[in-house]
Amino acid sequence: MALKASSLKVGDTYSECLVEDLKRTQIVQYAGASGDYNPLHSDEVFTTKVAGYPSVFAHGMLTMGMTGRMLTNYVGDGRLTKYGVRFTNQVWPGDTLQGTATVEEVSGGIVKLKVETTNQDGVTVLSGYAEARVD
């Protein structure tokens, strides 16, 4: 499962579709599991009439969680040592997301990755980095 340093090259990429046509119910599911019940993510009336957004939108942490799934599928279970992101655009119900990790450096048993998640329009919704132990 884990990556081998000897078979990694700078510029290698790994990519996965994180979600197709994101459902409001998955956002609710994430709210329940994470404990973040901010109405911006599930309460259309509040979000449109009070907060002024066109609809509810996903927790940044849901996008980070789904992107994390792509990372652990790539680097193996229990191998991540660092993972950090900026949320650069909102993710809306109906969005389809693609997550990509790009090898930036391999040294000392650690791979450094650039991480990016984009939506169906090619807009970056999350950008960040990760580091993982490799064999």
């Binding site: 927790h59 940044g60 942490m61 980070m64 991540l80 040592t81 660092k82 993972y83 950090g84 992101v85 900026r86 949320f87 960040g128």
Partner: peptide, 8 residues
């Protein structure tokens, strides 16, 4: 939420 970073 603007950024989130974890060190494991």
């Amino acid at each position: 939420h603007a950024e989130q970073h974890f060190e494991y």
